[in-house]
């Protein structure tokens, strides 16, 4: 399984080699900073009214209407094996496009857009939580914290999810 993924990883890594930088939309989930490549982000939303979907996987929070399109909301906390967000805290969402479908990634807070230099990029440490490793592309060393780059296609690939 992991071996099968290795070549893909390598080619993905290539873009982080050498000089240059990438822009990321940052967000926080449970005090941790994450980033998503800015070009993948379609929209940033505040608290939304979400329709629950019965029988859906637990990570699927429901669906919402974004200007006439139906968007599937994913609770990133649950996807990352984190406890659910306290009910009293309003959350925010980042809308991404994946294979023509829109998904809204529910996070705690959406922050600014950062341009990060490739020199600060590193592969995820091997000791990282397997679920996190699976859905992350790597880590950026920021001044006072670490930023985890989320791999959106893998984040939305529920097929690899083991039944919890």
């Amino acid at each position: 399984m992991m071996n099968g993924k290795m070549p893909v990883r390598r080619s993905e890594d290539d873009q982080f080699q050498g000089e240059g930088s990438h822009d990321y939309v940052t967000m926080t989930i449970a005090e941790q900073v994450f980033g998503i490549p800015v070009l993948q982000v379609q929209d940033v939303l505040g608290q939304q009214r979400i329709t629950r979907i019965p029988l859906a996987p637990p990570e699927v929070a429901g669906s919402l209407n974004l200007r006439g399109r139906i968007v599937t909301a994913i609770d990133v906390r649950l996807r990352l094996n984190l406890p659910p967000r306290p009910k009293d805290k309003p959350g925010m969402s980042i809308v991404v496009d994946h294979q023509g479908e829109l998904y809204s990634l529910m996070v705690d807070m959406v922050g600014e857009v950062l341009s990060l230099s490739n020199q600060d990029f590193e592969r995820s440490p091997a000791t990282l939580d397997p679920r996190w490793r699976e859905v992350s592309l790597g880590i950026y060393r920021l001044n006072n914290q670490l930023l985890v780059v989320l791999d959106v296609p893998r984040l939305l690939n529920f097929a690899s999810l083991e039944p919890a």
Binding site: V60, S63, L64, N65, G68, I70, T72
Partner: peptide
Amino acid sequence: VKPVAPILRHIEMFSGNTILGDGSVIM
């Protein structure tokens, strides 16, 4: 009738989803 997201297709209880007049999504 709009098809549901691929990750929900396995739920055979739903044939699709849609947006109602009031703007809410409904299965």
